[in-house]
Simulated scan of single mutants.
Amino acid sequence: MEAFLFSTGFVALAEIGDKTQLLALLLAARFKRPIPIIAGIFVATVLNHALAGSLGSWLTALVPADIMRWVLGGSFLAMAVWLLIPDSIDDEDTRLQDKLGVFAATTIAFFLAEMGDKTQIATVALAARFDSLVGVVMGTTAGMMLANVPAVLLGEAAAKRIPVKWVHGCAALLFAVLGVVVLSGVQLGFMG
């Protein structure tokens, strides 16, 4: 349960203002079909984060614990810095709809947009940290949905009211604290 809750909170915060959330806003404004867009986001996220989580779990089994601590700590600190860099989106991410339906276009666009994205990297790191692949993937997927479903349903009006810089700052601070905790070797209840 810890892996699920921790992963949900981290990814929900990290996703605010992220490229994929901007993609959700763009798709919602362009196609005005929330159900297939939300379904596409869900499918793409589950697939992408299951692969990322599996990579994180595999790395944990492969890399010795003392080295993994440095890798994870450094990854969380890098995530903190990355969260402070604003994202943008290309119009090309939505051109797939011309050839495919809204659901398929959203699924493909989201899957590709998530490749190497902050939340995918966070999923790898969280899966490496927690011994619960299912909990992490379910949590990161829930976090993505918490951030993107309102973006799809409420569109740009809601996005303009969310203080993205403040949310990114809070998320960056959380990742930085987690990185320092992991690097210092301090064991907290939620850190196993």
Rank of each mutant, 00 (worst) to 15 (best):
E2N: 08
V102L: 05
G135C: 04
V136L: 03
H49A: 08
G116M: 03
V167K: 03
D87I: 02
P150T: 10
I35H: 11
M191A: 10
W82C: 08
L13R: 14
M145I: 15
L174T: 15
Q187E: 04
N148H: 12
I67F: 08
E156H: 06
L133I: 03
V164S: 12
G74C: 14
A113K: 13
L133D: 00
F175E: 10
T123R: 02
L183T: 04
R69Q: 11
V164R: 14
V71D: 07
A176L: 14
Q97K: 12
I38K: 09
D117E: 13
V149L: 07
R129D: 06
L146F: 11
A171Y: 07
V181A: 10
F31R: 11
F42K: 02
L146V: 11
F4V: 01
Q120H: 07
H49L: 07
S57K: 07
C170Q: 10
L51C: 04
S54R: 00
S88R: 13
S184P: 05
P86E: 10
V136C: 02
A50D: 00
A24P: 04
T60L: 02
G40R: 13
E156R: 09
A105R: 00
A78W: 09
E92Y: 02
D117A: 12
G135Q: 04
G73Y: 10
T20Q: 10
N48C: 15
L96W: 09
W70G: 09
S7I: 00
V137L: 07
A104E: 15
V180F: 12
V124G: 11
L72M: 14
